[in-house]
Simulated assay, not measured.
Amino acid sequence: MVPNSYPAAQHVMVLYTGGTIGMQASANGLAPASGFEARMREYLHSQPDVVVPQWRFREMSPLIDSANMSPTYWQQLREAVVDAVDVQGCDSVLILHGTDTLAYSAAAMSFQLLGLNAPVVFTGSMLPAGVTDSDAWENLSGALVALGHGLAPGVHLYFHGELLDPTHCAKVRSFGRHPFKRLERQGGGVKATSLPAQLNYNQSKQLAKVAVLPLFPGIGAEQLDGVLNSGIQALVLECYGSGTGPSDNPEFLAALERARDKGVVVVAVTQCHEGGVELDVYEAGSRLRGVGVLSGGGMTREAALGKLHGLLGAGLDTSEVRRLVELDLCGELV
């Protein structure tokens, strides 16, 4: 990104979902708490050297620990972003979110908000605002300052002075100031030349049912069938290496074939932190391709999950979903 190559934010909507950043002590430990807007204003007023854009504040309901994040809440977030930009006239959005599922939500919003001509930034903190050595205010003010300098339209993840593409990163640490890391994934896809109108951010979205299943030594058709027969529309299958699985197990392959025939979309991603899926490199991968498994290329688990929710939630038919899975929509495959 070239600094200042995009318009500086003038009117920011801050969406507060809860999370550690605003938590306060309760009888059962730290819990999401209301009243963060006043604390935010007090802090920024005490820092006259920190120049941030004008902002307004919306407290989402309910406030949650991000361990309780769900696709239903993603829909609320999408609607809140659309309202902020298209109805209230804000030119950017800052979402305060707990860190445990922040990468999932930011990746999901990358697909829920395709076509939005405004930057959306996710941030949060590892320690609550106000406690010793908290990272809350530095992340919040840093994200606002970044918006004030100008960011590209689309979804960003800001943490400890670093801007990350949410379709390429994951939470890799449960402590410290650098919990998020860009995963060096490979296996690029061809850029989609055009997108169906249903994928545009201002089109209503449905809830989809998507699951994630990691492969492990000993996994069999009974475990796979248990997930595939649970009513899901799609499955992110976390494979070994470049996209291999138990290809010498005919029952396992038959379960995948039945899923394809029922219209369940199965997408392979790698369990590795680096690299990506190339299903035709090994026989164990090409057999997966032969029973209908699609290549997720270098997509992270978070990106693949969010992409499937976006495609299925748009109401696209199965053949179109399968086509678009392997095309790059917003940088997730580059």
Results as ranks from 00 to 15, higher is better:
V293S: 07
A192Y: 11
E238I: 15
Y201P: 07
V266D: 03
S194K: 09
G243R: 01
C272I: 05
Q186T: 13
S247A: 15
D261M: 06
G226H: 05
V190N: 02
V265S: 12
S286R: 15
P246W: 02
P214N: 08
I219P: 13
L237A: 11
V267W: 14
V266Y: 06
L237S: 08
E257P: 00
A268I: 04
P246V: 01
P250N: 02
G245P: 10
E283P: 12
G231F: 08
V293Y: 03
R289Q: 14
S204G: 12
S286Y: 14
G241V: 06
D261I: 01
F252L: 10
Q203E: 04
L195F: 09
L253S: 06
G276M: 08
G245H: 07
G243Q: 02
S204F: 05
A259C: 10
F216V: 04
L253T: 06
C239A: 15
V281A: 05
G290T: 14
V267Q: 13
L288V: 11
G292T: 04
S194W: 06
I232L: 11
A208F: 11
L256P: 05
V281F: 09
L207R: 11
L215F: 05
G285L: 10
G231H: 08
K191W: 03
G189A: 13
E257Y: 01
G275R: 09
G243A: 02
G188K: 07
P196S: 14
A255C: 12
L294I: 03
Q271R: 15
R260T: 10
G189C: 11
P250G: 05
L195D: 11
C239R: 00
